[in-house]
Design a protein around this nucleic acid. Structure first.
Lengths: 204, 204
DNA sequence: GTCTATAAACCGATAGAC
DNA sequence: GTCTATCGGTTTATAGAC
């Protein structure tokens, strides 16, 4: 009965997918908490509940493992971007994405953008799936930025490049962590405050 | 002749100070370039041009060495803050400090603020001289923020805490690094763009 | 105080049994 | 594919000669 064979294979593949998703969940959490350089493979293995050697049966290196995690995160972000109603004004779309990212960041599953000071940057550039997703997301954001500048809701004198980088950077702003550590504000208050300072500044 | 003795001692102490300042210069540069976790004591020794063991004759650990470097940077920042003409409006003082910090950052000698994800944070909290300087700087900034809110040049509805953290964070914003890597803007253009988005937002 | 040489700990990655 | 055990390399820090 070939169909049973196919089902069994499919089931095994599904199990594999689940296991690898569980690994990526752990990596995502640890990347958000400690960053690439401070995260150890022992910690990842302990978090998932398997032996370190087993990790290497799924992902060939720490770099590839982290890149896969970042790629999945990029896919999730694209999914959020594409789920926004097309009737929404472009500025609102931008704010929605940043809002979602800050919320996720406060929830502890959004790693800091690989800064120029982390060793992960090179690995990401050498990992085509990540670059591809990053390009897709950048295209979406770039289109919204251009449209928002055209309809006057974003400054026309500000280079689009600056707005794009700012949107990326504010999505994992350390200010959110400091405010959360302070304990004076709820998560949703922090999100509102960061959205306001990001888009409207501090002069009022 | 005691005076000669004193002079010789003073000279030796001066030499020691110069050597330690040279070490802190190297640490400052390497902290800005790679961050605490990726900086190695071998690199520091090589940059200064002495053996690694000699480093430990001056500073007892990597943590203390880095904390001393960050403390000196804090002192320099306070000096800049206190050198601003008192006639300057408080908002302009705030902008001047952020402007100076971003310029220094682009020049490669301003380390990123110790994020919540770096091991240096604990060492800094356990290093009283740093905490003391940080408090002094925070008092200056806090006074300016309050005054700027009173005279209406800064939003009165924005909690001072948020403004303070934002000022600190924008002083070592990774957006500056990305824009510099892009190569489309000069350093002074980058500074102007970041000051604008930081204080006035992106909506125009 | 400066050097060379090395200790001690940690981490990424692998070997080999099951 | 999972495990235990270990290798090889790196890093912080120190010992000891000069």
């Amino acid at each position: 009965m070939p169909s049973t064979q196919i089902k069994k294979l499919s089931f095994k593949q599904q199990q594999l997918q689940l296991r690898e998703n569980a690994i990526l969940d752990a990596v995502n959490k640890l990347l958000a908490k400690k960053g690439f350089d401070l995260m150890t493979m022992d910690e990842v293995a302990a978090e998932v509940g398997i032996a370190k050697a087993s990790l290497y049966k799924h992902f060939e290196s720490k770099e590839v493992l982290s890149a896969a995690s970042m790629t999945r995160l990029m896919e999730q972000t694209i999914a959020v971007a594409e789920s926004l109603p097309s009737s929404l004004p472009p500025l609102d779309k931008l704010q929605s994405i940043v809002r979602w990212a800050i919320q996720t960041h406060l929830g502890g599953t959004m790693p800091l953008l690989p800064s120029t000071r982390s060793n992960i940057q090179l690995a990401l550039l050498a990992y085509p799936p990540y670059i591809e997703k990053l390009s897709t997301l950048t295209e979406h954001l770039g289109a919204w930025i251009g449209a928002a500048q055209d309809n006057g809701t974003l400054s026309k004198t500000l280079p689009g490049e600056v707005i794009l980088y700012t949107v990326f950077a504010r999505s994992c702003d350390p200010v959110a962590d400091f405010l959360k550590m302070g304990g004076a504000f709820s998560d949703s208050e922090i999100v509102d405050l960061l959205i306001q300072t990001c888009f409207h500044g501090m002069t009022g």
